[in-house]
Structures are given as structure tokens and as C-alpha cells.
Design a protein around this nucleic acid. Structure first.
Length: 556
DNA sequence: GACGGCTCCAAA
DNA sequence: AACTTTTGGAGCCGTC
């Protein structure tokens, strides 16, 4: 191995896989800085571990293809560049629109990541083996402005966090989960039949509705049965049924709640997703247009219902530290717009209370509702009505989201704080707008065009806030990951405090009990770091609600 | 029987 | 709780 460990100037190390093994190329920002080496796939983990001592930034096509195998062999890396994720950002950002990368023909770097092979295929050569990661890396460095470079490293750090969380898994007590199911639904039934308590509630439904053969899982049948019972319903949505006062409604609502638990997080879910006391969800960094993560399998880790969080239990002698960024999106809006009044409103811990104290609205609930309306583009209802008052008190903040909405309505791109660009509307959308603009357009067409334009405007309005909040969360995670690694010293990931769960504005760390307070401090510090990275010296606070608990159900 | 669209509900 | 954003998944139901 003559890719010398610690050689000066070797800031990046590019990994490329081919049919014979892996080529390791040391680089700096613009050029190859050393002699490429080839190692066999079996030798790679040891080679990476050795080179990691000089703390390079590992450059690879796709973190989800390289890192799980390294982790499985006990190799952790500090930094990386995930070329595919970064390519997607640079291809679409207004800040890199004139770069060679963005103006190039569509190429394989634009295609979504291939499905990660289930277990350990040890760096199998995929369809992308022909792509040259070194060339792509140089194109990317050339395209990235300083702001974009920050976004690219946050995005890549997120990919490392995701892989490490998937590796560690979320502590999950199958016995606790099972007890909850038995208590709520009855003992596990034979496949094809309903649990006893559910069956019992169903008999109540059937007799109250005088429909002995009713299949409650069929919305169509249920609506018909309710109408026969004299009720006027448009659908079987819970919120609609709740408005109705009739003896058949309570058992239906109970049944629906139970059916949801059974199908989404019942025994089948437990069998399929929990092994060895851990739930290993699949996170998909950059999986959402706004830059949020998506999740796959396991019912979607990002939709983990509060109802079953009691089954997330820390190991003996360990704790869960659960941190939630309070009122994140309104604070993000305050930061993006540098609206001094709104920044000020958030300085005393409760931003909504701060809004009330200016007299813009009367109650905290109104403040919350008005802010949601501002960020989502509410047109009707209470939040629509409250918007004008908000706009008078916080003109800069509201102007920012309004401008994003207008840009979207014109079919333009908008961007987050760090430069992630929104997608453009479809060709169909453009055609409709063009048609509506022409003289002979009919009333129906222009009404449809206006409606679609407003819909896209609501999307772009929300995009800048949701997307910037996602950037904040990436910076938060990246900074915390670094701090936890320092805390761990020479211990392996799962032997010391480590991240186990992420849900948009919430993080969970699993740690030995004696580390819990240090972890809480690190989480708060990381939140402050993230705020500074995005918004500089603006006196904007990102308070966390932190709970040190034995099980996730105890947090909030 | 496979597949896609629809409904409903979980999360932020 | 709907209004208004982004998602994932289960089950039903009609079509092929």
C-alpha cells in the first residue's frame, strides 16, 4: 500500500469498483495527487481502516453501496462525498446552473441509486462500474459554490449517519410490543382471522348498524351501511365520522384504530422487521424532493406511530436521549427572512407565545395556526383569516414565502437557504398555463390553470421552508455525529453513545446511562452549531426539548 | 392472479 | 380536525 497514510495534500480518496477489485485514487480538489492503487475486495476494509488514520474524505458513488459492508467489518469513516446525492443537488440548483455538470447531457449519474442488495454482497460490481468517479468528482468541485459545498458535505454526512443508524438499529423489545398488541387487540390469531377484541368490537358495529354481514374493512360497504342507518356521510374518514352523534360511530372508530394498528404495526410487522432486539429501518437520504429523508420497509420508520414507541426500550444500564427541535419550521422561516420581529418572537423559548405578545393574534393556538397557514399556503379557514395580521407584524417573513409562492405560480424554480433547487412543474402544467394565456382560451381552462398554478405555488412556498429545515437537520446530525465520535474515543459505534433514530426534527441517541447528560449537552450544542452554519450571527435560537428516558414512549 | 388506482391513516 | 406541504404502506376493488 503506497497510497501513503498521512501523505500531505491527500485530502480526498476516491474509490472505484471494477471487475478486478477496487481502485483507490488519492486526489486534491482539482487533480489526482498520487498513484492509484488496486486492492482486492477482500482487502478493502483493511485498506480503508489504514488510510482512515489520515482522515481523508472518502469519495464514492453511493454511500449505501460501500459503507454498509465496511461497517459490517468494523470499519467506520469520518467523512465522505456521496457523488450520486451531490450530483442530484448540483444538477438542479440555481446556484450551479451554468456549470459544466449542470449543462451536460443527462448521464448515468442522474439515475437514482440502485436498490441496495439485501445483505453483504461485498462491493458487488453494479451497472455503474463504467462510470468514472474521479472525473465526476472534479466536475462537482468545479460546480460547487461555497454555500453549495456546505450543502454537499451536509448531505454526504447525512448519508453516513443513515448507514450507521441502519447498522446499529433501534432497540426494540418484541415482548413489550407483543404485550401491547395482546392488550389492545387480543391474543395473536391464526392467519386469516381477526384478533378476539377486534372481533368483539366488530359484533358491536354490526349490531348497531343492523348489518350482520358488514365487512368493516371495505369503505364502500361501510358507507352504504351507514346510509341505510340514516346517516349522511361522504366517506368513512375518521374525522368525518367523529362529527356524527350516533351509537354506531364509537365502535367503528375503535375498530378502525385497531385495524390500523394490526395492519401497520401488528405481529406481521414485528416478524418482518425486528431481529435480535433491533429494528433496522431503511432510510433514504435525499429521498424527498425537498431534501428530507424518506424511509422504506418497516412501515416507514418516518411514520413510526406514537402508539408503539413504548416498545423502543434502552438496553439495561443504557438510556435513550430523545431530542426534538421545537417549532423548527417557523424558526427556519425567521432565519431565512431575517425578520427581526420573528427572530425576537422566538428568543424566549416559545415562538408562538412570542407572536401572541406582539398582539398580532390573541391566542397561542391562533399563532400556531397562522404560522402553519403562512408556510403551507392556507387559503380558507381560520389560518387563512389570520394571515393578514401576521403579514402586518412580520412583513419580511411573510414576503419571503409569498415571493416563493408567486415564483412557483410562474413556473420558476425556488431554492433553499443552501441552494437546493425545487423541481420544475411538468410539461402538462406548462401547456395548461400557455393555453390559458392564449386569447381564445375558455373559461374552464383558465380556471383550471389558475388552480394548478396556485397548487404549484403552495408547493414552492412550502419547499423553501421544509427544505431549509431539512438542511438544518442535516447540519444538526452531522455536528452531533462528530461530537459523539469524540465522546466514544476508541470505542466502536455500538459500544458508546450513538444515533439510533431520526424523524425530520427529532433525534434519538442510545447511550450508557452515565453518558446521558453529556449527550444532552452535545445535542444542544449541535443544534446551536447548525443554526450558525445556516444563518451566521443572526441571534436565532433553536431550543430543543430533550428527554432522558428508558423507553421512547416516555418522551413527550 | 397481477397490477394500478383509490381510500384511509401514520409521521413531520 | 379539516383547511394547506412532503411522504410510505395496507387493503379494497376494478381491469386485464
Amino acid at each position: 500500500m503506497s497510497v501513503a497514510t498521512g501523505r500531505l495534500g491527500c485530502v480526498y480518496v476516491v474509490l472505484a469498483s471494477d471487475s478486478e477489485g477496487v481502485v483507490i485514487t488519492p486526489c486534491d480538489e482539482r487533480t489526482v495527487s498520487g498513484v492509484p492503487e488496486r486492492v482486492s475486495r477482500a482487502e478493502l476494509p483493511a485498506a480503508v481502516a489504514r488510510l482512515e488514520r489520515s482522515r481523508p474524505r472518502w469519495v464514492w458513488d453511493d454511500t449505501s453501496r460501500w459503507y454498509p459492508s465496511l461497517l459490517a467489518r468494523g470499519v467506520r469513516v469520518e467523512r465522505c462525498v456521496d457523488l450520486r446525492l451531490c450530483h442530484a443537488i448540483l444538477r438542479n440548483s440555481p446556484l450551479s446552473a451554468s456549470s459544466a455538470l449542470a449543462t451536460a447531457e443527462v448521464n448515468p449519474w442522474d439515475s437514482p441509486a440502485a436498490d441496495v442488495p439485501a445483505e453483504d454482497t461485498l462491493f458487488e460490481v453494479g451497472v455503474d462500474a463504467a462510470l468514472d468517479p474521479v472525473a465526476e468528482f472534479f466536475l462537482q468541485r468545479q460546480a460547487a459554490s461555497p454555500k453549495l459545498a456546505l450543502l454537499l458535505s451536509a448531505e454526504s454526512a447525512g448519508a453516513l449517519v443513515a448507514a450507521e443508524m441502519m447498522f446499529a438499529g433501534l432497540p426494540w423489545r418484541a415482548d413489550v410490543h407483543d404485550a401491547l398488541l395482546v392488550r389492545t387487540l387480543g391474543p395473536r390469531p391464526v392467519p386469516g382471522s381477526r384478533p378476539a377484541i377486534m372481533e368483539h368490537v366488530l359484533t358491536e358495529v354490526r349490531s348497531a348498524a343492523r348489518a350482520p354481514d358488514l365487512n368493516p374493512d371495505s369503505p364502500g360497504e361501510l358507507v352504504k351501511a351507514l346510509r341505510r342507518a340514516g346517516l349522511t356521510v361522504e366517506s368513512t374518514r375518521s374525522w368525518e365520522l367523529k362529527k356524527i352523534d350516533h351509537p354506531v360511530i364509537p365502535p367503528i372508530l375503535r375498530y378502525k384504530k385497531m385495524a390500523r394498528l394490526l395492519s401497520a404495526n401488528g405481529w406481521n410487522w414485528l416478524d418482518a422487521n425486528v431481529r435480535g432486539g433491533r429494528f433496522h429501518p431503511e432510510y433514504v437520504p435525499g429521498g424527498v424532493v425537498t431534501g428530507r429523508w424518506a424511509s422504506k420497509g418497516g412501515g416507514g420508520a418516518l411514520q413510526l406511530p406514537k402508539q408503539i414507541r413504548g416498545a423502543v426500550v434502552a438496553d439495561a444500564g443504557w438510556k435513550l436521549v430523545v431530542a426534538d427541535a421545537s417549532q423548527l419550521e417557523p424558526r427556519i422561516l425567521a432565519g431565512m427572512s431575517a425578520d427581526r420581529g420573528m427572530v425576537e418572537a422566538g428568543s424566549a423559548g416559545d415562538l408562538y407565545a412570542g407572536i401572541v405578545s406582539t398582539g398580532a393574534v390573541h391566542t397561542r393556538e391562533q399563532a400556531k395556526s397562522a404560522m402553519l397557514g403562512a408556510m403551507y399556503g392556507a387559503t380558507s379557514g381560520e389560518s387563512g383569516r389570520l394571515m393578514p395580521a401576521l403579514a402586518r407584524t412580520y412583513p419580511q417573513a411573510i414576503a419571503l414565502v409569498e415571493a416563493a409562492a408567486r415564483a412557483g405560480e410562474r413556473g420558476e424554480k425556488v431554492a433553499t437557504r443552501l441552494g437546493r433547487g425545487s423541481p420544475l412543474p411538468s410539461a402538462r402544467w406548462r401547456d395548461l398555463q400557455t393555453q390559458a394565456a392564449s386569447d381564445e382560451s375558455r373559461e374552464g381552462i383558465s380556471a383550471a390553470a389558475r388552480s394548478e398554478a396556485r397548487t404549484w405555488g403552495r408547493f414552492t412556498r412550502n419547499f423553501i421552508v421544509q427544505g431549509t429545515a431539512a438542511e438544518w437537520a442535516l447540519c444538526w446530525m452531522a455536528s452531533l455525529r462528530k461530537a459523539l465520535h469524540l465522546l466514544a474515543g476508541d470505542l466502536w459505534i455500538t459500544e458508546s453513545a450513538h444515533l439510533v433514530f431520526f424523524m425530520h426534527d427529532e433525534l434519538v441517541v442510545h447511550c450508557p446511562a452515565e453518558q446521558a447528560e453529556a449527550v444532552e449537552g452535545a445535542m444542544r450544542q449541535a443544534a446551536a452549531d447548525a443554526g450558525r452554519l445556516l444563518f451566521g450571527r443572526l441571534p436565532l435560537e433553536f431550543p430543543l426539548t430533550v428527554a432522558i428516558v428508558d423507553d421512547y414512549g416516555q418522551a413527550k
